[in-house]
Design a protein around this nucleic acid. Structure first.
Lengths: 222, 222
DNA sequence: TAGTGGTCTAGACCACGAT
DNA sequence: TCGTGGTCTAGACCACTAC
């Protein structure tokens, strides 16, 4: 991103992509090609000056990547490259450790050893930010899958009317599926499903920073 | 929050809560007591000066509330109070429109009418940020439920080993449940479950801003 | 003590929607 | 045109971790 497209004219798109999003794109690429899980990124001040943006802007990009689970930030330590995802059964994308226009070459300390740092001490606040228009799903990298789906429509295969075979077009059933789930009664309990936010413990379990949105199922006995 | 505790000494807690989180707390209370769904909050510049913080700090609080689904922000329009949650089957908390030390009284325009503005135009970027230590779950307000749980452990009641009756203590099964789900094969398909980020369309379906983390199920045919 | 991420400020300019 | 949220800057101080 550097200085390109600083001039006004060129752009045809209504609104040029925000810097922090371009930055995210660059970083994603770097993560895919130049870093391995557990490695430490250059510090924020370094990166921001390297990319010619304010630290806050860089942090916006990092925030998003952390939200996406690609980074883990530790106060006093640094920003680490997180494990790819939640355990994927298929051969992961080659994790091309190969070459490419590398822009981020830097020190690459590996994580000491004991990872899974699920400490109990109350985590201090963190921030999250978000993404723009509609960048292609990063998951597209993997082998040729058929379709991606979101929480409700897919995680509940046994709920009537929620069977697989969905395509993006069909995913509008997501809501109706959730609704079905909400109407569900099992073992004499009744439950409600709503969107909530992961507290500390949940966040730890999900290996995501606290505050991320999750589906919350509340079970009620009478 | 205003100016209180500006002096240093008083605090006993190791790390004083960040301003933006205190602010969030105040706003949550205000949302619960002074506003109704669809109402418009005072604008950010107003609020920030009212609370004596920088706009960026106020925005951090609003970001979190948006992430939690309590607010919706519309460029050029304002910040609206969002619907409580994803449809709760139980009587909602009285939505106490009653009184309390109201701090936010202001203009309360109601939403015009046609809500559900699921436009197709690419939404411009938004930001998200996050929460601190471990504030009590807001859901605790409702009637006496038994337990809250997170995505994997609850939304998949039929997966072996994923039956209800969970308590917070048990919720450590969340991960193993997900793992089970990942091993699932239905209709000759195989699938992978991972944490991802909602793109535009998904975000629209879930009525959340793009970029929120979601469970992504990828189905593969061979 | 030095380096890192986390928070906060006070300003600025922009694109959007309504008027 | 004007008010709103969205982005960005350049700086500051803090708490945490390692040395």
């Amino acid at each position: 991103m550097g200085s390109t497209k600083a001039a006004s004219g060129t752009a045809v798109d209504t609104v040029p992509e925000p810097k922090y999003w371009q930055l995210r794109t660059v970083l994603v690429r770097a993560l895919d090609t130049e870093f391995r899980t557990g490695e430490v990124l250059p510090n924020e001040r370094d990166l921001s000056s390297r990319f010619g943006v304010a630290r806050a802007t860089l942090r916006q990009a990092l925030d998003q990547l952390e939200l996406e689970g690609r980074l883990v930030r530790r106060r006093g330590i640094g920003t680490l490259v997180a494990a790819p995802a939640w355990a994927c059964r298929w051969p992961r994308p080659p994790t091309t450790t190969s070459a490419l226009p590398g822009q981020l070459a830097g020190r690459r300390r590996r994580l000491p050893s004991g990872d899974r740092g699920g400490r109990d001490r109350a985590r201090p606040p963190r921030r999250h930010r978000r993404p723009p228009g509609a960048p292609a799903a990063d998951h597209a990298r993997h082998g040729h899958r058929h379709r991606d789906l979101y929480v409700p429509d897919s995680v509940v295969p046994h709920v009537p009317g929620a069977f697989i075979k969905h395509s993006l077009a069909e995913s509008s059933r997501a809501r109706s599926v959730l609704r079905t789930l909400q109407r569900l009664e099992l073992d004499g309990e009744s439950r409600a499903v709503e969107l909530g936010v992961a507290e500390d413990e949940a966040a730890r379990l999900l290996e995501r920073p606290p505050g991320i949105p999750v589906l919350v199922v509340t079970t009620s006995y009478r």
